[in-house]
Each structure stands twice: as structure tokens, then as C-alpha cells.
Design a protein around this nucleic acid. Sequence first.
DNA 1: GTGAAAGCGCTAACAA
DNA 2: TTGTTAGCGCTTTCAC
Lengths: 326, 326
Amino acid sequence: MTLHDVAKLAGVAPITASRALNTPQQVSAEVLRKVSEAVTRTGYVPNRLAGGLASTRSRLVAAVVPTIAGPVFLETVQSLTEALAERGYQLMLGQAGYAGGREDALLEAIIGRRPDGIVLTGILHSAEGRRRLLASGIPVVETWDLTPTPIDMLVGFSHVEVGRAVARHLHAKGRRRLAVVAGDDERAGRRTDAFCAAATALGLRRPRVVTVPAPTTLKSGRDALATLVREAGETDAVFCSSDLLALGVLTEARVQGWAVPQRLAVIGFGDLEFAADLDPALSSVRIQGGDIGRQAARFIVDRVEGREVAEKVVDIGFSIVERQSA
Amino acid sequence: MTLHDVAKLAGVAPITASRALNTPQQVSAEVLRKVSEAVTRTGYVPNRLAGGLASTRSRLVAAVVPTIAGPVFLETVQSLTEALAERGYQLMLGQAGYAGGREDALLEAIIGRRPDGIVLTGILHSAEGRRRLLASGIPVVETWDLTPTPIDMLVGFSHVEVGRAVARHLHAKGRRRLAVVAGDDERAGRRTDAFCAAATALGLRRPRVVTVPAPTTLKSGRDALATLVREAGETDAVFCSSDLLALGVLTEARVQGWAVPQRLAVIGFGDLEFAADLDPALSSVRIQGGDIGRQAARFIVDRVEGREVAEKVVDIGFSIVERQSA
DNA sequence: GTGAAAGCGCTAACAA
DNA sequence: TTGTTAGCGCTTTCAC
């Protein structure tokens, strides 16, 4: 089944059938009717490979995440999918892995499909990767971070500000002996560093830092708190680099008999759906992941459709959601 | 940058350059060297749209999930991605939504890209969708279920057996007043029905069933248990249709002062990573989601590469992982 | 509003 | 082992 067959059935030229499908307003009502009928009768599905090749518009957008198992980006990916689907674009999802070895191969696989845009989520890209991306000429949106040297467009927030804000928040709540439990990815590292710097600037002792492997798990959180209890009994507040980690900390705190928030304040990161419904309800840093996805979609579609993107960098901000745990 | 340019630079015909890239063993060492050099010098990335159009092999596999926010399929999707990547295929992920309205549009978008295979995960497809899939001639793998009438290939397990097995398990543990908290999707419904049937067959009273909207959340689990406590104080065991739901039940049970497992046994479904590390550790039904993904990849690659698939249906089974909560 | 011709970048089939 | 020719299915351009 090709456009040719459909056109023949409708008694028009292929190009006319093409117009009936893609730009119906350019075609007479009569032709539209005949073509639509031929399409439904034959069950014709346009070959987007051919279309993409001819038009250099694939209507495909690629997104790269470290792993889809990381719940932090789910909201972003989901809203991105939806926002793109509404505008007739399809999302292709690639997993780079936190390690980064696969990153270049993945990038090549992606660029080879000539997507109309690429959304990078939460990964640190190699210099080689940057170069390829730039050379490809494909619109790129980096997300979940604010870098001084974006490849192209950017929608994110400042991890440094998050770290600072959380330290200040805990300080304001009267906490004096802070700790951090963080996954060993680069962004979490920046939050941690800023958190520690802010804490010492406030006159607090330097926070204990427990680093765990990314992706973070509940178990890592439990183990980390157990460590803190053993090594540094005086901790009275923990900032976790993910809500899952925080759930682990909460769990272990209960097991160890450390009352939250009385004995220990806990604050997570990501504000996953379950955070509000835990007992005690988990305080967390909320990132509007959905907004990030929607803005990324807008960026790319605007660019593809020839609209000028005035401001290529958007700071989406964050907020600290205060609940029982801190 | 096209293959033409690379070929010219290497001093060979385009088809020779193509062979150097795709089937290097068909080409002299000398040619291979020259072409490789030209590729690295130019940063050439093959256009897979063109390649796919010419060869009718896109090296793209599409997977459809209800939503990537549902953690149940993550393991499957992840192993699928990896198994495919190893063999040089790329995964395209589509979200159908639990509602199902978008399903046909999604299918069209997918078929239009002429993927080498389609993996269907946890969705119920319309008759229209089935027809299109069949008509497209693309290899299809349905997963996470066993249906008597598969579209093509199938790797899953019996939801009915799961329901039965869990009922028997709880009965064997001495539980007599069972309940179910389940998301309102079709598969969970089948587990629930089988669970109830098995319970009554064992001489137990008909289990209470609390249905919650899919996708399931921790909050739904809490609310459901609160309902059970209010309406049916005599419940002594709950089978939840997801681990998140079970976490909610566990949480609410603690709040309500129902000791787990003494007063209430709780068993989840999916055996997510966190299940083992909760307190109390959550018993759950384990599905080898990773195996499902790997088998699906094998199915598709075998088919694409012309190997005959002898047994088109694989029952991957399940197991009940016994931990503290039940 | 409709169509003819040409070509997007690549590979299958055949030939040398 | 290498090359020539033709064409995958569609859309662009230009003409009517």
C-alpha cells in the first residue's frame, strides 16, 4: 500500500493525494472526500521514512535519559510525550546509562534518524557528543540543569541554588548538625557542594556526606542512615538526593528509633507523587518536571516550524515543599 | 554530509562505502581503512531514514506501554532496550495511556515509521488496532499476559494463575478473611477474579474488593486500607495489585495501628526493587520483567533476521516472594 | 486547484 | 572485490 495506490484509487495524482493528507486546505472538497475514502478502504498508513527523507522533517523527537528506571524524569518525559503528540510529533526515547559509555553510540543512532529535535535529560555529555550534536544542526534542548554554556536551548534550574536553599531551610528550622545522602551523579554532587558551603557559611559544622551509587535506591537510603547513626550520632537533619533515598532514610530512622521530625529532619528531592502520602509526609524539593517537558516541546516545535526562539534559556525554578518530615 | 561525499573522499563508489560500513567483511582492508578515515574526518552519520527506505529494514523497534510512569514495566523496557541495542537496534517508546483513546493514533504513528518489530506491553488493544497491526505485516510481540489468541508472538504469564496462587498462599498461611486492593485495569481485574474464585473454592468468605483508579498510587493504597478498616474490620490479609499500592497499605496499617503481619498480611505485585527493603519487608509476586524484555527482543531479532521462530508463545511464569509482610 | 518531473540518501540486484 | 543501475515512497519545485 503506497500513496500511489491510494491516488490511483481516488483517481488523482500522487501529489494531490499527498496534499489531501498533509494540507487538506489546499485541495477541493471533492478530492478530499475521494482520497479519504480510498485511505480508509485500503487502510493506508503513510511511510514516514519516505516522507522524512523527502521533506527532511521526520516529525520525530528524541529524548535521552540516563535510565527510565530513574523516577525523577518520568514526569518530564511524560509531559514531553504528550505535548509533542498533540502537535503531531512522536517521541523516541534513548537510555544513555549513568556510566556514559553508551552515550556516543546512542547519539549516533539518534542523529542517524534525523529527528526534528533532541531533548537531553539529566546527562553530562562528552565533548565529542557535543560536537556531533552541534554538527548535526538538529535543535537541542538540555534540561534539568542550568549551564553557562548550553549547546543550544535550555530549560532547567540551578542545582547550586537548590543546595543553598535547603541548607538555609534546615537552618531556619533550627537544625544545626546537617548531613547529606546523595547519589554519585554530577548534579547531585553540585547540590551537595552548595549545601555544604551554605551550611558552613551559616556557621554550622561541615555536613557529613554519604555518597551512594546512582541510580539511588531505598536500600541505599537505609544503609546510609545506618552509617550516619553509627558514625555521627549527632546528625539532626538529612538532605537526600532523591525521594527514594529519603524513603529509605525514613524507614531506617523508624527502625533505629529516631523519631522524624523530632530527632531527625528529612528532606528529599524530586517530590515524587508518593512523597505527600508517606507517614510522616516527606518534605521535598519540587521541580516542575511537567513544565520542563512542555517547555522543551515548545522550544523544538517552534524551531522546527520556523518561529524564532527569542529566549533560549528558561530557568524553571524549584520550591521546597514543607511537610511533616522537616 | 552524505555517503556520496564520504565515498568520493575515500576514492570509491558509494556502494563500496556502504559495504565498508555495513558489511566490512565484504571489503578489502585497504578500502575499509580509507572509508573509515573518511568517516572520522567528516563526522559522517548515516541517514537511517534513507537506509530504511531502501532496505525496508529500519533497525527500529517500537514498544508500547500504558504510561512510563507505571513502574511495573520499567524492568522490561530497560532490558528490551539493552538487548536490542546490543544487536544494533534502537527502541522507540510510545505511551498509549490507560484510557486507550490515543491507542489507534499511536499505532498509526508507529506503523508509519516501519519499525522492524512492535512490542506491546500491558495494554488491551482494540479490534481495529489488531487489524492494523496484522495488516502491517510487522512482527508483533505481546507481553505480560497470556491470551488464547495472540496477534503474533507472545511472552507473558497467567494472571489467573497469579490470583489463584496468592489466594492459596494466604490460605496456607492461615489467613481466612481476605481482601483485594486493585487498580481498575483489565489484567488486575483478572487476577482479582481468580483470587476471589480460589478463595471461595477454599471455603473462605468472598474477599472484599476495593477498586482504585489505574495507575495505582501510594495514596490509593492508604485510602483503600482506611476503607477496609472502616467497613470490614475483620480483614486479615490484603492482596494489592501493585507494590506501590502495598506500600500505601503498609503505611496506613501502621497509622491505624494494625500490625503487619500479625494483624494483617500484605502482599504486593511486581516485586519492585524497594519491596525487599521496606520495613516490614514486602512479600510480592515476582515477574521476571527483564526476561520478558530479553525474550521479546530475541523474538523480533530472530524474525527480522530470517530465523524461524519455532515456539511463538512463552510462558515466563511468576513466583511468590515471601518476606515479612505475609 | 492540480499535476509532471526530479530527487531526498541509501541499498538491492545484477554485472564486471 | 568493486561498480552500475534502478528504485524504495514520498515531497519539493515549478508549471499549468
